[in-house]
Design a binder for these strands. Structure first.
Lengths: 147, 147
DNA sequence: CAGTATCCTACGTGATACTG
DNA sequence: CAGTATCACGTAGGATACTG
């Protein structure tokens, strides 16, 4: 499952770095792309966020990460665990108890992602304006046949 | 087309910021999520990357952004244009010539994304190790029925 | 509680053909 | 050249039911 579980998402971002056309740069870019393929998907970052500074149980995650299905939560958690971004601790008790937490690696990722998030914050107004302006332009534009 | 063109991708990242449970934070997080919904898709960042520091024509983009279909290139370009991240300049000549370029807003986005890319670079080895270790653990783990 | 196994659908995406 | 319009397909991902 883990091997054919490759969502089409962020990814490719890595190639941003191969702008310089440096061959060695390119090799590393491919690696980075591979990584972003996993951490850039729809749910991973939401999960990472919920895990920041806290240890959380499976059901808590399911409840707090609004909209995620049990299936997706499991898949996301497995992927992050495999990449060493989250840790999974099973307590041999009944009923079962499993704790998830961010590893140190996960903490550093959290920091990086915040940069992108900040950008969205800082520019949300500009983008809203741009969208409105664009939509207005489209609405005003007459059909070619009506010219 | 632009309104129902909502790929399921990065998104939600914004909610990373609502960790503090600040209500106002949450409002802005939703906005940011909306924005990341667009810029986080598979092709947008590749296009943005190709556009860094340069004005590029449609066909050039199609050739350089490996693997993108004409349909997706058009859709991606439209979305980025609507968000004010790229500019589209039509030259009234024959044959047609259309130039695409990053706006100032687009330039700032490029910078932010590079942070995440850098993270992938810096930690690719750690992740590779983690994956190998995880896969090894899975392979070693005997079937329950064999215990 | 914490998953796993199936079924099923929506949508992203590529291929192809046509237009101004 | 720079698109737009269709069609066809794979698969991500939701809903549901079952298990240890």
């Amino acid at each position: 499952m883990a091997s054919n579980d490759r969502p089409a998402n962020l990814a490719n971002v890595a190639e941003l770095a191969s702008v310089a056309s440096d061959p060695d740069d390119h090799r590393r870019a491919c690696k980075a792309r591979d990584i972003l393929d996993r951490i850039g998907d729809k749910w991973s970052l939401l999960v990472i966020r919920r895990l920041s500074n806290e240890t959380v149980r499976f059901t808590e995650l399911r409840r707090d990460v609004t909209g995620i299905s049990q299936r997706m939560l499991t898949a996301t958690l497995r992927g992050l665990e495999r990449d060493g971004i989250v840790s999974r601790t099973v307590h041999p008790v009944v009923p079962p108890r499993v704790d998830y937490a961010l590893t140190e690696l996960g903490q550093t990722l959290l920091a990086s992602v915040c940069t992108l998030v900040s950008w969205s914050y800082d520019h949300s107004d500009q983008i809203d304006e741009a969208r409105s302006a664009y939509d207005q332009r489209q609405a005003d534009k007459p059909r070619v046949s009506e010219l």
